[in-house]
């Protein structure tokens, strides 16, 4: 299958720069997949799991919130953080998730930091999911 360039950029590093066949990313309105020659899209991403097919196999990453810029020959993900599944310590991820869930259950859903806690919980879930793959 035809390949295209996928670049995942975070504020602290370029997490990935690879030729891939397909990438799926967690859009704000639901997960979407991108193949080569996709139409131009800029989409908001929420914390979740990104998977992509490279020639050497499937890569799974947990990403924070951010944006996707899609061009026919290149896709760029600008995210707060990105970790390859192999970089995540699954036990640490699980305990982070437990903490995030506890914090979230402690506040009512109209509290001003509810949204922030929800995002960190989603991110923690994504890390657990990515580590499990």
């Amino acid at each position: 299958m035809a390949k295209f360039n996928l670049e995942i950029v975070t504020p602290q590093r370029i997490a990935l720069n690879e030729e891939v066949e397909i990438v799926t990313a967690p859009g704000a309105d639901g997960e979407f997949g991108v193949l080569r020659d996709h139409t131009l899209v800029i989409s908001v991403l929420k914390p979740g799991v990104v998977t992509c097919e490279t020639s050497s196999g499937t890569l799974t990453l947990a990403v924070g919130s951010g944006y996707a810029e899609v061009y026919p020959e290149k896709t760029m993900l600008l995210v707060d953080s990105a970790e390859l599944s192999t970089e995540i310590d699954s036990e640490e991820a699980a305990s982070t998730l437990r903490e995030a869930e506890e914090k979230l259950s402690g506040v009512s859903d109209d509290a001003h930091d509810y949204k922030k806690l929800l995002i960190s919980k989603e991110h923690a879930e994504a890390r657990v999911e990515a580590a499990g793959n």
Partner: peptide, 23 residues
Amino acid sequence: NKIEHGFTFEPSEEEVLASLLPK
């Protein structure tokens, strides 16, 4: 040029901008 030539914004241009500002 890119925006003129039909970038699709998801969910919408306004929402992308609104989330971009704090970033």
